[in-house]
Design a protein around this nucleic acid. Structure first.
Lengths: 258, 258
DNA sequence: GCAAAAGTGTTGAAAGTACACCCATGG
DNA sequence: CCATGGGTGTACTTTCAACACTTTTGC
């Protein structure tokens, strides 16, 4: 028996023992690569549906710890930047029909009264990670785990489109209150890259010059002498966040409507 | 047997039948009266502790419906403005020792394995109500229900201080994106009253004249010919919200940092 | 040398801030 | 008649928004 199948059977049999009933969590993991905002998705086993990485809450852990544990499994990273943003609790949102069907397709029997078949209320988290550091890893009910361009994401399983949209909406609202640039970009980045990130999150174009003035005005960036070379135009400078000043500035919020 | 005691015994015995396990909700109900921001609190039976109104989620309802149901019982009002804002899930936040102790004091035996004694994850809601319309009503585990001035609230049961603080913090962030004035004030109110509300939520003084200009600038207020009389100074005009324009304005957010 | 994209600067409009002045009312 | 607090106005400053011009680089 494959390791994955074993782990799925484990979940179905022992879920009720280790996890709180009725409570699940789903994570919208954002990354930024090649000037695109990306989201980490899992492909359901033997089906053409994709969904958000999720999991359950162990009887002795907080939901934050649970989300951290789940994301460590899916990305290889520990202590990811995580924010819970909404609870999804429509009674019809899921009786896990989809998951059970997936399980059956791998040849596992799931009875109606299985722990897995109950109603779940899901706590939505969004996570911000540095794209290059993630090693996407599928879980017991999926057979693929990869990054998707935000624009290319179509119909997801269950209410995951709803969850994704709400995450995006929240991300926009949090843009000036959370270390969003800091956690999504690599240590060194250029101004155009940072601007593209903001534009993608906000869903609108920003003026190059005004953006630069405003963002540097916060005093949270450090410019390097070094530039990005190899481009067919003037080489842009590298920047890094001054983490100390960034954190300080976030206390009050980087106000101003973009 | 009192009606309340009966209802408490019912809860303990049949909780597991009607409610989802491990999930509770707590509501921070804000009202505004005599230029003070108030919060609705319950006094625990036979103890000197106060706490937030809370409840559980029925097996067939969403958490929003559950909160609405709970608040209907505590305030007499239906369809209150409600926003979930955070999930509180520290494993040690509550094994309901407090509640069980309260129950015991009313002469009801609660065993260790009772549904009530399990670990609960609580979903925090804040609610905004028009003070004068509320009829505070205690529940099965409390013997009093009244409004408290925000400033006078001291130590609450369990992690309810934490919940309250987080609610306030969220309220501040939402000030320009939610119909906060509209739901907290009576139909007619004066400019100084509205200003005091903003000041209380934000926790700082605002300039009287600039406040007036800014808030009227949004075009969401309607001024009446009528004034508030009986005060030992110039009588202020009454205002009302133009609900249509208010909702419209909220779509984009009433931006600007106060 | 030319297209593409970066760095820097200017300017007028809008918004925010800090005030001063007058007015109505009850005691 | 005066203390209290409301209504309105103005002048200064800061920020925002829309621009133009120059510089660097690969082809």
């Amino acid at each position: 028996m494959s390791e994955q199948k074993q782990s799925l059977m484990n979940l179905l049999e022992t879920g009720a023992t280790y996890y709180l009933s009725h409570i699940s969590l789903d994570c919208v993991v954002f990354g930024f690569h090649e000037n695109q905002l990306k989201v980490l998705l899992l492909k359901m086993k033997d089906r053409d549906k994709w969904g958000l990485p999720g999991g359950f809450v162990r009887k002795e852990e907080s939901v934050e710890l649970a989300a951290n544990r789940v994301l460590k499994e899916r990305t290889g990273l520990d202590n990811i930047f995580l924010q819970q943003f909404h609870v999804f609790s429509d009674p019809d949102r899921s009786n896990n029909k989809d998951l059970i069907e997936s399980a059956r397709k791998t040849g596992i029997e799931v009875t109606e009264d299985n722990w897995f078949a109950q109603r779940f209320i899901s706590i939505g988290f969004y996570a911000l990670v540095e794209f290059s550091q993630v090693k996407p890893t599928a879980d017991a009910i999926s057979d693929d785990c990869t990054w998707w361009d935000l624009q290319e994401i179509k119909s997801l399983m269950l209410d995951h489109n709803l969850i994704l949209n709400k995450a995006l909406e929240t991300l926009r609202l949090h843009l000036n209150y959370q270390p969003i640039g800091y956690t999504l970009l690599p240590d060194k980045f250029t101004m155009p890259e940072l601007q593209k990130l903001y534009e993608t999150i906000l869903g609108k174009k920003l003026d190059r010059r005004n953006f630069q003035r405003k963002i540097t005005g916060y005093g949270i960036l450090k410019r390097w002498e070094e530039r990005r070379s190899g481009v067919a135009h003037k080489a842009p400078y590298f920047y890094s966040f001054d983490t100390e000043k960034y954190k300080q500035a976030l206390q009050e919020g980087l106000d101003g409507g973009w």
